[in-house]
């Protein structure tokens, strides 16, 4: 019993220490963003890498999720004879929740994990120490472009996911189940409010992008310099990233009150 409590205490301490380290790390990134020279080439390379890497998976998943929403929404709405509101139902769920959240989770699995593994390997092969010895700050040259690219790409991917989701819902609802295409689109247009839905969707996507950028680079940067260290860091990056996205999603939803 006492042991269990001790262990809990130790775990809590470690957790808080970890949070502190992430905060310091975030501060180092923010400071590096504004320090010359700007790392434009590496940033663009990273945007391509993480963006293109995730493109297919985001589009396919978007269509699939939209299709499921169309089907489930239709089956529910048909009981109330309200199938003409299917566009609104699919759109609201996608914009407010599933778009940003599922995009973030997919993005973590696809781009976050590989970013962590790449940085971890650079640690293990002393490439970051090599940069330090050449008087180049690895946070400035390696970490910041990667984290910024993830922050930049997330809203784009999330928007893409929503777009393809709406398409998937339309395909199933209007083409398969016979909802009137005109009312699908008009109910969608009427239901989506810029400030409540689109803006909060973007805020979520940006927040998640920021979190994924920091967590995946942090885990790689602080990984043990061995192959098992890199593999542990990659797992941690996915687990910590996913769980914190889900928790923060709840907090944001509650905060924005939509």
């Amino acid at each position: 019993m006492v042991n269990a409590i001790q262990e809990l205490g130790a775990k809590t301490t470690r957790f808080i220490e970890e949070l502190g380290r992430i905060a310091v790390f975030t501060w180092l990134i923010v400071r590096a963003v504004f320090r010359p020279p700007p790392r434009i080439r590496p940033f663009i390379d990273e945007v391509f890498k993480v963006g293109v890497m995730s493109l297919v998976i985001i589009c396919v998943s978007g269509v699939a999720v939209g299709a499921v929403l169309g089907l489930q929404g239709y089956n529910t709405l048909v009981r109330f004879g309200a199938t003409e509101s299917l566009g609104a139902a699919v759109g609201l769920v996608l914009f407010r929740e599933l778009g940003p959240v599922l995009t973030a989770l997919l993005f973590i699995g696809r781009a976050g994990s590989s970013t962590t593994a790449e940085i971890g390997t650079m640690v293990a092969t002393e490439q970051l120490d090599g940069l330090r010895m050449m008087a180049v700050d690895p946070i400035h040259y390696v970490i910041t472009p990667k984290a910024l690219a993830m922050l930049f790409v997330m809203p784009l991917l999330s928007s893409l996911f929503i777009l393809f989701g709406l398409g998937g819902g339309y395909l199933v609802g209007a083409q398969l189940m016979g909802v009137d295409p005109g009312s699908y689109i008009s109910s969608l247009q009427n239901a989506i409010v810029f400030k409540d839905d689109i803006l909060s969707s973007l805020i979520k996507a940006l927040t998640f992008g920021c979190m994924v950028g920091v967590i995946s680079t942090f885990e790689g940067y602080s990984s043990a310099p061995t192959s098992s260290g890199v593999s542990r860091a990659t797992t941690a990056s996915v687990v910590v990233g996913s769980v914190s996205v889900l928790i923060v999603d709840y907090l944001l939803t509650a905060l924005m009150g939509v």
Binding site: M122, Q127, D129, G130
Partner: peptide, 9 residues
């Protein structure tokens, strides 16, 4: 010069 080279790969 690092033991493993430490070249940017």
């Amino acid at each position: 010069m690092f033991q493993g080279g430490a070249l940017l790969d």
